[in-house]
Simulated assay, not measured.
Amino acid sequence: MLRRIALALTASAALLGALPLAAQAHSQPAPSGPVPPPIGVPGLGAGPGLGGAQDRLTVTVRDAGAGDGTYELRCRPGGGDHRDVVGACARLAELAAEGRDPFAPVPRDAMCTMQYGGDATARVEGSWRGRAVDASFARTDGCRIAKWDQLVPVLPSTGS
């Protein structure tokens, strides 16, 4: 009897020890497909590989404070009226180099903290790395706050 209890406790402890790892696996959104590697100077050089295709994004931000508005961001080569073209393009190139898709939605089965990061919303439309982009962002829970924060300076820092 004691042996069964000891085995049950050992199995329970092993299972509980694995839970934080499982939760971490869902804390970062998984890429929805392969992301091409960066080309040339991070975010700015056109370089070979995508036929010189330019990244062209329209970023619309609401209720974020000083960053509100609609901006055009072009990368490879950099341009547009975004407040930080160089920083935003470099961040997108960095995410691509890490194999991360910054525009993928938060997975439905993600375990997100129940916290509220403010009323800020954003929409990004256009093309990035040769594919269409139509992504929405908000700060309504921990997963969405992290997703927003990973895109600063493409999206404005909200200070929270």
Rank of each mutant, 00 (worst) to 15 (best):
H82T: 14
L7T: 11
P37Q: 09
V152F: 07
A14T: 06
P153K: 07
M1D: 14
L7E: 13
V106T: 11
A135I: 01
R4Q: 12
P102V: 03
Q54A: 13
V61I: 12
Q150C: 00
G118F: 04
L7G: 05
G65F: 00
L21P: 00
M1G: 14
A8P: 01
A138S: 15
A97T: 02
T121P: 01
R83P: 12
D63C: 03
E72A: 14
V61F: 02
A104D: 04
P34K: 08
C75E: 04
G49K: 05
G142L: 05
A135T: 05
Q28N: 11
A93I: 07
V59M: 07
R108E: 15
V133M: 11
T58C: 01
P102G: 09
A11L: 15
D68F: 09
R144N: 13
P37W: 09
L44T: 14
Q28M: 09
A8C: 03
L15M: 12
P38M: 08
L73T: 03
L19K: 04
R74E: 13
A6D: 07
L151S: 10
W128Q: 05
P31V: 06
R129K: 10
A8E: 02
A97C: 07
D84W: 11
G45R: 10
G142D: 11
A64K: 05
A53R: 13
Q28T: 12
S12Q: 06
V106S: 02
T10Y: 00
L9C: 14
A23S: 05
D101E: 10
P37L: 09
G17Q: 03
D109K: 01
A96S: 13
S27W: 07
L50V: 04
S136M: 08
G40E: 04
D141V: 07
L151V: 07
A11H: 03
S27E: 09
R74C: 03
D149V: 06
A11S: 10
P156A: 12
V35R: 00
F137P: 00
R139T: 00
L95D: 01
R56H: 14
G87K: 08
S27H: 04
F137N: 02
R76C: 02
G117I: 00
V86D: 14
T113R: 11
V154T: 09
